[in-house]
Simulated scan of single mutants.
Amino acid sequence: MSSTSRGLGAQLDDLEKSLEQALELVRTTPRDDLTAVDWLETAAKLGGFLSDARDASADVRQTLLGGARSALLLYLRGHVAETVPPHALEGVSGIREWARRIRELRAVGWDINCLGSGSSAPYRLDDAQLAEEVAQSQRIIDSIKGAKPKERIIEYLLHLCPWPAAPKQLEQVAGVPTWRQEIRDLVDEGWLILSHEDDSALPPGFYRLAKIED
């Protein structure tokens, strides 16, 4: 997906700077006569740079597609039936609490399984989509908590895909009467959201996010 946000370039610059600082710290760490105490001080500084990098990555994610849960859902739906390591999910989400977001996705019906025990156990999304009655349930709508209308709309469409979203539900999710403009903005940003004009099988006023693999 693309973004017209003026802040995206600055966010990527922040990410690059943090990673460069981490790399420079490692490069300048002496290879000879390194003591445990010296390494602890270095590791503490390294942790700060990596934390900054995670925050900058989360900012990019927020600009491009909204919350961590949307990012995880989009990523897993693009890797259905594949084993996904936890570090990939942390990277995608940009937050330490990514496992909580996975539990929230499970709670609304997504079949996401942890394949083992311990912090290194991988995950797998086994079903490519929700059943239509689950996807269009009020439970899904109630679970969406994005800060902005666009964020809430895209998460809702990600849950529904490939099922269509009705105007009433979209307005409820968006929480604003200008939800149609929000959808147009998302289309301008690169999201493949179809209307009746794009797909005659859709009832007028309904919208559908095209298949994730499209």
Results as ranks from 00 to 15, higher is better:
residue 84 V to T: 14
residue 44 A to F: 05
residue 86 P to A: 10
residue 175 G to Q: 12
residue 42 T to S: 00
residue 169 Q to G: 04
residue 132 E to K: 08
residue 207 Y to C: 03
residue 34 L to W: 08
residue 49 F to V: 05
residue 188 D to P: 03
residue 1 M to A: 11
residue 110 W to E: 10
residue 159 H to R: 03
residue 200 S to E: 15
residue 181 Q to P: 01
residue 197 E to R: 15
residue 191 W to A: 02
residue 107 A to W: 12
residue 170 L to R: 07
residue 117 S to D: 15
residue 111 D to A: 10
residue 44 A to W: 11
residue 165 A to C: 03
residue 207 Y to Q: 06
residue 20 E to W: 09
residue 111 D to L: 10
residue 41 E to L: 07
residue 156 Y to D: 01
residue 139 R to K: 09
residue 133 E to V: 14
residue 15 L to Y: 12
residue 169 Q to C: 01
residue 180 R to I: 12
residue 145 K to A: 10
residue 210 A to Y: 07
residue 30 P to F: 01
residue 42 T to L: 00
residue 47 G to E: 07
residue 175 G to M: 11
residue 19 L to K: 05
residue 151 E to I: 05
residue 88 A to L: 15
residue 72 L to K: 12
residue 13 D to G: 00
residue 76 L to R: 02
residue 213 E to K: 00
residue 101 R to H: 15
residue 20 E to M: 03
residue 209 L to F: 06
residue 96 R to P: 01
residue 26 V to Y: 02
residue 179 W to D: 05
residue 81 A to P: 01
residue 83 T to Q: 14
residue 162 P to S: 04
residue 193 I to V: 03
residue 124 R to T: 11
residue 140 I to L: 13
residue 122 P to E: 03
residue 146 G to Q: 14
residue 122 P to Y: 05
residue 116 G to P: 03
residue 29 T to Y: 04
residue 129 Q to A: 13
residue 96 R to Q: 10
residue 173 V to F: 05
residue 124 R to Q: 15
residue 122 P to F: 04
residue 129 Q to R: 07
residue 109 G to Q: 00
residue 98 W to Q: 04
residue 178 T to V: 12
residue 94 G to Q: 08
residue 14 D to P: 04
residue 186 L to M: 09
residue 71 A to F: 07
residue 49 F to K: 06
residue 147 A to C: 10
residue 186 L to P: 01
residue 147 A to P: 04
residue 171 E to Q: 15
residue 157 L to W: 05
residue 99 A to Y: 04
residue 71 A to S: 14
residue 146 G to M: 13
residue 99 A to S: 12
residue 53 A to I: 12
residue 77 R to P: 09
residue 197 E to D: 15
residue 129 Q to H: 15
residue 13 D to Q: 03
residue 20 E to T: 13
residue 57 S to W: 11
residue 206 F to P: 02
residue 126 D to G: 01
residue 200 S to T: 12
residue 46 L to F: 01
residue 8 L to N: 00
residue 189 E to N: 11
residue 168 K to F: 14
residue 136 Q to K: 14
residue 45 K to N: 01
residue 73 L to E: 09
residue 43 A to S: 11
residue 189 E to M: 00
residue 152 R to K: 12
residue 76 L to I: 02
residue 199 D to G: 09
residue 47 G to V: 01
residue 87 H to F: 15
residue 67 G to I: 13
residue 80 V to C: 09
residue 63 T to R: 12
residue 191 W to Y: 10
residue 48 G to V: 08
residue 61 R to S: 09
residue 1 M to W: 02
residue 178 T to W: 07
residue 50 L to H: 00
residue 14 D to H: 09
residue 165 A to S: 04
residue 189 E to Y: 06
residue 81 A to C: 09
residue 33 D to G: 01
residue 34 L to P: 02
residue 23 L to W: 13
residue 182 E to N: 11
residue 200 S to F: 14
residue 129 Q to N: 11
residue 172 Q to V: 08
residue 183 I to Y: 03
residue 135 A to I: 08
residue 153 I to H: 02
residue 28 T to S: 13
residue 2 S to Q: 08
residue 27 R to F: 09
residue 54 R to A: 07
residue 7 G to R: 04
residue 54 R to M: 09
residue 212 I to F: 07
residue 32 D to N: 11
residue 73 L to V: 03
